[in-house]
Write a protein that binds this DNA or RNA. Structure first.
Lengths: 208, 208
DNA sequence: CAATTAATTTAATTTTGTTAAGTTTCATCA
DNA sequence: TGATGAAACTTAACAAAATTAAATTAATTG
């Protein structure tokens, strides 16, 4: 049965991405073989080449899927904090870190991505990572409207905040946090968000 | 001449590390082959196995060398800013980013390291990365003594600052900074340091 | 100076990404 | 409806690169 009957077809593309995400929590991307992915999917390795140009393209698809997941969470969370801009920023930071800690392998791939596969379209046209940054930027503007933070340069402020939180996640996932155990390291990252929020809180001129 | 005469011996270990650092600025670690390294060193690939257990061990040695280089720079800079704790922190941030931007390939390897090679010794006993964090922590304490920052928890503060600056470097090296060109992205990272210093400056109670 | 150890080489092996060739199913169109 | 071509797989073959084995020569040591 070279070509499977339509009734027993599986969505190789979607399953390969999902299984790779799962495998990423067991081993690094370089250690994952296409055979492994194929077995998990339920096909042979060359079948993957019908859906992805090569291994890097698969990893890039996983990378993109990661950012789409992150964006979804971000938008859902924003909807839950319509009112309080300051709280939205804080909860956004905490949620970001939970995302990273729940899927450490995926997070690592998202931020040390495989070389971009050459395509004819603009890679950033559909980049969910850029959309995540845009969402953060909108939260920053809400905070500015509430009197926090320097009034100008919301893009720069959003970048700074993302850098800080991403940096905390990244260091923790590499065991570079000054903490004895895993939970201590994660707590240190969470505390980073709180410290930043403390700084931001201090930027608000005292009520007169 | 299977074994080279002592007069014409080369220090394969040191040269392999140096040449790999150089190659890292041309291509990613996964794309560097041991043959390439061997050619650059002036030997054959299997000779590398006398000095490194495997490719990961070589990359780990490069990773460690990177942190030692960073530590040296950090200590040299600290010596130049004995007096002014605030300036030391700011200049330290800028120097950190210059380090990352001058050696992007090495920096990437330092923060998305290959799996740790199993050895019998404690990997953190000689970890220059930990020493870098300790140096930053001492700069934080100086700043606290000068009246900046929350007074307690220097370790947490140092971690937060490192996270922010590392995060900025990491995002820029992945083209995730909101800037049109390379120089704009790097400027955004530098501005991150300035913004943090602004926050820190604001933590000092106004002179009465 | 003989014997062992060390540092390298070339040759062989293995793993894994990728391509080629072959097979079955699906879709289209006369 | 049946032939034909395209699509989605399979198994087989290939190629590159990491690793190991075997062989060779130099250094060291007793």
């Amino acid at each position: 049965m070279a070509r499977p009957r339509k009734t027993q077809q599986i969505d190789i593309r979607a399953r390969a991405i999902a299984e790779t995400i799962r495998l990423l929590d067991e081993k690094a991307a370089t250690a994952i073989t296409l055979s492994e992915v194929a077995v998990a999917v339920g096909c042979r390795a060359p079948a993957l080449y019908t859906h992805f140009a090569n291994k890097d393209a698969l990893l890039r698809a996983v990378h993109d899927a990661g950012f789409r997941m992150m964006l979804e969470e971000k938008l859902a969370l924003a909807a839950r904090h319509e009112g309080d801009a300051f709280a939205r920023l804080r909860e956004g930071g905490h949620a970001y870190l939970r995302f990273a800690f729940e899927r450490p392998g995926l997070y690592r791939l998202m931020f040390s991505p495989p070389p971009l596969v050459v395509t004819d379209e603009n890679p950033f046209a559909t980049d969910a990572g850029a959309a995540c940054l845009a969402a953060l930027r909108s939260a920053v503007r809400s905070c500015q409207a509430a009197g926090y933070l320097p009034a100008e340069d919301d893009a720069q402020t959003a970048f700074t905040l993302w850098a800080a939180v991403h940096g905390a996640a990244s260091l923790v996932l590499q065991d570079r946090a000054p903490a004895a155990d895993r939970d201590g390291a994660r707590a240190a990252a969470m505390a980073t968000v709180d410290m930043l929020m403390g700084f931001i809180g201090a930027t608000r001129p005292p009520l007169s």
